[in-house]
Amino acid sequence: MLPEPHRLRRRSDFSSTVRRGRRAARPDVVVHALAEAQAESLVSDPGPRFGLVVSKAVGPAVIRHRVARRLRHICVGLIGEVPEGAHVVIRALPGAATATSADLDRQLRSGLRKLNLLASTDAASTGTTR
């Protein structure tokens, strides 16, 4: 479960993140992000905040809830990696219904890296270890 301080709840937070933030589209998700400098006036608690949009286009209620649970679980793992004060809205596309959790995780991380909210994994890509 995503802790309360890390959830976007208000409609105004969602809409400002989608309208004023940047976006990165992937095959099964679209990541909208509002960076820390822009989100300072919107958030009083430190830490990143995540919001999900899973519409009826994804599928029936059972499928939508499954996709939302998977995305929430991925977001919990990203709390320590995304900069404090950032707002992130994840919009699931219809393909998310058949995507595996690993695919969703990979696509979400890829979108966050494109938006410079997640450090690139240079050690993993070059094959070096610490």
Score class of each variant (00 low, 15 high):
residue 126 T to G: 08
residue 55 S to M: 06
residue 67 V to S: 03
residue 16 S to K: 10
residue 33 A to Q: 06
residue 2 L to D: 03
residue 24 A to Y: 00
residue 78 L to Y: 02
residue 128 T to R: 15
residue 5 P to E: 06
residue 6 H to G: 00
residue 37 A to T: 14
residue 78 L to Q: 02
residue 105 D to S: 13
residue 89 V to G: 12
residue 74 I to E: 04
residue 89 V to M: 12
residue 92 A to W: 08
residue 22 R to G: 12
residue 99 A to L: 06
residue 39 A to M: 09
residue 105 D to M: 03
residue 92 A to L: 08
residue 12 S to I: 14
residue 107 Q to F: 10
residue 96 A to T: 06
residue 99 A to G: 01
residue 122 D to S: 13
residue 78 L to T: 10
residue 117 L to K: 07
residue 48 P to R: 06
residue 42 L to D: 11
residue 88 V to C: 05
residue 38 Q to I: 09
residue 23 R to L: 11
residue 38 Q to L: 14
residue 61 A to H: 10
residue 121 T to K: 13
residue 32 H to S: 07
residue 84 E to M: 08
residue 129 T to F: 08
residue 88 V to R: 00
residue 69 R to D: 05
residue 72 R to A: 04
residue 111 G to F: 03
residue 114 K to I: 04
residue 108 L to W: 10
residue 21 G to E: 08
residue 72 R to Y: 10
residue 54 V to S: 10
residue 103 D to A: 14
residue 5 P to W: 08
residue 60 P to K: 15
residue 41 S to Q: 13
residue 118 L to Q: 00
residue 92 A to P: 01
residue 70 R to I: 06
residue 127 G to S: 11
residue 118 L to R: 04
residue 44 S to E: 14
residue 15 S to K: 09
residue 62 V to P: 11
residue 18 V to A: 07
residue 3 P to V: 02
residue 95 G to K: 11
residue 69 R to N: 06
residue 22 R to C: 04
residue 121 T to F: 04
residue 93 L to F: 07
residue 128 T to S: 15
residue 24 A to L: 02
residue 54 V to Q: 10
residue 95 G to R: 14
residue 19 R to N: 11
residue 119 A to F: 03
residue 19 R to A: 12
residue 86 A to V: 15
residue 102 A to I: 05
residue 79 I to R: 02
residue 45 D to Y: 05
residue 74 I to Y: 00
residue 53 V to A: 14
residue 66 R to S: 13
residue 110 S to M: 05
residue 68 A to M: 01
residue 32 H to D: 10
residue 4 E to Q: 14
residue 23 R to Q: 13
